[in-house]
Amino acid sequence: MGLVGPNGAGKTTLLLVLAGLLAPDRGGAAVGGCDPLTQPQEVHRIVGWMPDFFGVYDDLTLREYLELFGAMFHLRRDETKTRTAELLELVGLARKADLKVHTLSRGQKQRLGFARALVHRPKVLLLDEPASGLDPRARIDLRDLVRRQADEGACVMVSSHILQELEEMADVIVFVEAGRCTGIYQIGELPTGGGARRWRLRALDLGALQQAAYAVGTTFEVMSDGSIVVELNDERAVADLVTRLVAEGVAPTAIVPEGAGLEGAFLQLGAAER
């Protein structure tokens, strides 16, 4: 489940409530059949929480760090050891197991934090902006890690304002704005913003592409890099345009929707709010 909203919308607050760390002003919550208000300890055992900003104990090694948290979740000593090794392997930090935590890069710390959230095999994973500050490669790795947890049966809740990222990760998207839920959608059923979408086209010879587009009679915009942007109602229109361009002797090398579906939906929702 993806949680989308602008900064200050209440994503982190919601996750804190679900993690049993913050009491809501009104209302209640249920996590894995437990009430975070009255059974915080039970909820902590069920939930793996990774905050958007967190510190690590710089003077510990990676292994010590994870083992510490294993022990604090009352895992048995041997269990902690195997779990630690397993997790370090999972997040690709096994080679650094005996280095101090402060030698890690930001992305590596983020992965260590992710491993930490998994140490007690939580049934529910709450990840608050897990990809912030990560490079594209690390982001893809993280996405795969999160998906794998979900495939193994964990309920995962990820918050982000980076929309494509959630589109790739989540099955359900929840929009949050100003502390309220403004929409829940299955990933395939996201509103696209009233039909027309902008598509960017590139070809080997950009000049020829522009001429061909003119020849087939579409309205288009020429971007600063020479590629063109066309407004099309649906994918049938896209296929149609491509066929006609090929007939003109220009094969498009890239046809990319401008702004992913989510972004469109998000912007639309934001506009409606205002």
């Binding site: 760390l21 929480w49 967190f54 510190g55 948290f69």
Partner: peptide, 17 residues
Amino acid sequence: GERDRGTLAILQATALR
């Protein structure tokens, strides 16, 4: 100090009381 470094909440979220 732990609150400042962002490590306290993670402790609070463990099974420790």
